[in-house]
Design a protein around this nucleic acid. Structure first.
Lengths: 213, 213
DNA sequence: TAAATAATACCCCGAAAGAGTGATTTTTTT
DNA sequence: AAAAAAATCACTCTTTCGGGGTATTATTTA
């Protein structure tokens, strides 16, 4: 049996990696490409003609909804599953209106996530609003996409404060009396845990989550 | 006549530069050093024994109030003038309590700024709460320290949005269909206008000012 | 019309950031 | 006591940032 050919579309490299890690454990899923915005998604879809596109909604340049609309116009056979951490269900209806077949939340546990995706791929389950609602109901808390929801340690939160103030790694190292290498280590762990790519995204995240000021 | 020997203490390089630019035009002021936090301020005070310290209040590592307290304990003769963009006068009282002789706002025009500083240096004016209030009254709007208050252009605001999302210069250039050099040019102008040092500080600024999300 | 501002672009350069790997020590949990 | 997690540090390598310039072309304002 042929594996399902998957295209991952997400602006966060770590998020893409998280999805890849999970799906690569299963033989019936094959990741054939990654895109980090709507434009790239359209390009790669033309080139690779995937069976399924896992598409993030929030993206720079061209968001997932717009990309979904355009892709479905050109390639109606491609199945598109929106992925998002949002628990705002208005996004869901927008996505379905634009032609997305499915809707998966990043916050559900990875094994269930894959199960749903497979069922969807096999057309066993017409991924409906009802199912999406059910998922929402079962997993109200936000959980990270990967293995488990790894919270930041106190030390990491301490570091985060200084990063968001715009201090350099060297300045942070002096402020906390540790080496610059250690600062870099911590920062790498933080970015990895939160599936972010750089300190600016971390700063935005911190403000949006109310972790600073 | 000997010039007044000045130590500038501010965590923003651009702010320090702004002060330096203004004061260097006058022969009776000599900038003998710059510090970017309270700790450095104490160190440099011990080494250089300035006549006057221009001290920012908000700083990482050790803020201006704490530094003022410690410096006045060790060197009561040093005159300390707090500088701030804050129009919150509670800071003012705190500063005076901690031993600061004066209080200047970054937002007043540079010529008046220098006049006040010189008068203060010559002990002609015992910089009092009343005078500070008067300054506050005359200049209620926030204005930048340098020549004038330069607002961001629409294009610059557009760029700011993408910076705060954590996009790299290259990614921004692709998103806006301009060269990476142009992105860098814009960013340099933005940081210079706002007296900030890097894109993380710009991101924090944007959130605090409600320019994003 | 002349002057100022905005938007575009290029160069050089050193510093900083971030990815990859690996490792040790302390603390906490099981 | 053993295992897991947290905190520390090092070393290399490549890319990105940010400061220093300078310059051209529109557009807007005086």
């Amino acid at each position: 049996m042929q594996p399902f050919r998957i295209l991952i579309v997400d602006d966060h490299a770590h998020a893409r990696e998280g999805i890849r890690e999970i799906l690569e454990e299963f033989e019936d899923f094959l990741i054939i490409g990654e895109a980090k915005n709507g434009k790239e998604a359209i390009q790669l879809t033309e080139q690779l003609l995937p069976d399924i596109i896992l598409m993030d909604i929030q993206m720079p340049e061209m968001d997932g909804l717009e990309a979904t609309k355009r892709i479905k116009l050109q390639f109606p056979a491609v199945k598109i599953v929106m992925i998002t951490v949002s628990d705002d269900i208005t996004d869901l209806f927008d996505a379905l209106k634009k032609g997305a077949q499915g809707y998966l939340l990043k916050n559900i546990q990875s094994d269930q996530w894959v199960e749903h995706l497979r069922a969807f791929a096999l057309d066993e389950v017409p991924m409906s609003k009802e199912i999406a609602f059910q998922i929402l109901k079962e997993f109200p808390q936000k959980k990270a996409l990967s293995k488990e929801n790894i919270p930041l340690s106190t030390r990491e939160l301490e570091l985060l404060q200084l990063v968001a103030k715009g201090l350099s790694n060297k300045e942070i190292s002096k402020a906390l009396f540790i080496s610059e290498n250690t600062v870099k280590s911590h920062l790498k762990n933080i970015l990895s845990k939160l599936h972010l790519d750089n300190r600016v995204q971390l700063t935005s995240y911190a403000f949006q989550q109310g972790l600073v000021d």
